[in-house]
Each structure stands twice: as C-alpha cells, then as structure tokens.
Amino acid sequence: MSKTTVFTRRDFLRSTAAAATVAATGVPDLSAAATSSSVLVLRDQKAMIDDYKVDAGVLNKMLAETVMRVTGEKTAKSAWLSLFKPTDVVGLVATPHLNPTHPEVVAAVREQLRDAGIPENNMRDAQGGPEKVEQCTALISLPGLKAHWLTGIGTVLKNYIMYSGNPEAYHNQNNVKLGEIWNLPRVKGKTKLILVDALRPLCDKGPQPDPRYMWPYKGLVAGQDPVAVERVCLKIITEKRHAIRGETWLLSPPPLCVEAADKQYHVGVSDLQKIKINTAGWAQDLLL
C-alpha cells in the first residue's frame, strides 16, 4: 500500500469542510485552476412518451436549442458549424452499455451534424480504444447520466476511460486520476461539446440498471467544460438522492475524480460557485 496515495474518510471530510468554509467566507480558493464555466440544463416535459420511450421529434428540438444556447448562435446549423468544420472527422463518444446513451440521442446528433454540412462519412462511433480517438479531429462526448458504485459518478470523466489504452489503471482507488486521460495528447483539445443524456438518469447502484433509482428527468446537460458539466450532473444526482430518502444521502464513494480533474489535472472547473448554470424548459423538480 502506497502511503502517499491513501485518502481516508477523514481526509474527505476535512476537504469538504474546507470547501464549505471557502463558500461561506468568500475567500478565493487559489488552488483552483480555471476561473469560470457555464453549463446548460435544458428539459422538456414531453421528451419521453409515458416517461419511458424517447420522443425523437421533441428530442430533436431540444438538441437544436441546446447547441444554439451553448454556442450563442441563432440557428442549429450555425451552432454546429461554430463547433465543427466540414473537414473535421467528428467522433461521437456514447456510452455503449449498462444504462447506455439513448440511441435516439446519438441519431439526433448525427442528423443535425449532417444537416449542418458535416459529411456522414466524416462521423465516427468513437467509443473504444486509443485508435478510435486518434482518427478523430474533434469529439462530442455523449455519456448517459448515472451514479457509479466504484467512482460515485460515472458520466463525463469516465466516458473516455478506454482512450487511456489501459482502463484497469483507472479502476478502483485509481479512479481519482480519470481527469488525466483528458490531457493525453491524443485527446486534449478535441472535445468541442459535452452533451449528457439526462433523459432517464440513474442516481444509485450504477452502472447496472436499477429502476428504483431511475427517473424521467427529461433533460440534456451540455457545455464545453467537462468538469463543470460533470459537477452539475453530480448536483442533479445528489439532490435526487436526498429527495428519494427524505434525508441527506451522499454518494458513496465520494466522486473524488471530479475535484481532482480540476485541482490536479486542470481539465475544468469543479466549484459550483464558479459555474454559471443556465436552465431552459421544464422547471419542475429541476434539482438545481
């Protein structure tokens, strides 16, 4: 056991208390890497038929609005083209199994990219090993929102674990290093959009599906800062857990990888106070 890597419950409680003190006093946290980020949470009550099946038409409108709001462009086409060039090889990185990304989400992204002028043969299913990401010039991360019993949350940061070429090195106690993968030369700077499928998230016991902890949130969570998007997703999951139990019900283990991705690997912003959360659409039970 390497003593330098031991992180205990006590360490976690101390770091949480320190963060709370910073929040209460307004003293800036000088160790934070980035300054601010924005994340969009867009929902539509009609996104799922009978709270179960995706309504592709509604989803398509949600996606167009999402990409316009994230980029500040006035049309979906210009929004997509502000992110990608027709010459880009665009990798779509969905979660393939165990609460997978809804295929309708991947299909809608493909369709809108195509409509914007990205050739179909320039799009790749880019989930997989290093060779998948190496062939792409740009990426869209498309994970499903879910808790994970080994990492606390298993959504944005974990979505690129296969790009490491050595996923075992990021399992168990080493999951705290997941942010490191986003800095690999074959990955860094390629991700133009993080689009989380939050249509029917899972707030406990992931990655195996457990419908007791799945609910029709009917949302998309999007942004360009993977850590900030993950942090907002974490907030949604945590608030849902509290609502289910009617008492504080924190994720266990704590998602240490999120803060580490900010403070240690400088991939993005993990401090909620530095994240501007923009919301649109259905506001009931927003959990933010």
Partner: peptide
C-alpha cells in the same frame, strides 16, 4: 473494501 466504500467510504485504499 470496494463494497465497503460503496456502503460507507473509509479509504480509497484497502486499509
């Protein structure tokens, strides 16, 4: 210890 941590986080290592 992984199961323990999913129930009650004690340490990232198998202490």
């Amino acid at each position: 210890y992984l199961v323990l941590n999913s129930l009650y986080f004690l340490s990232n290592e198998n202490i």
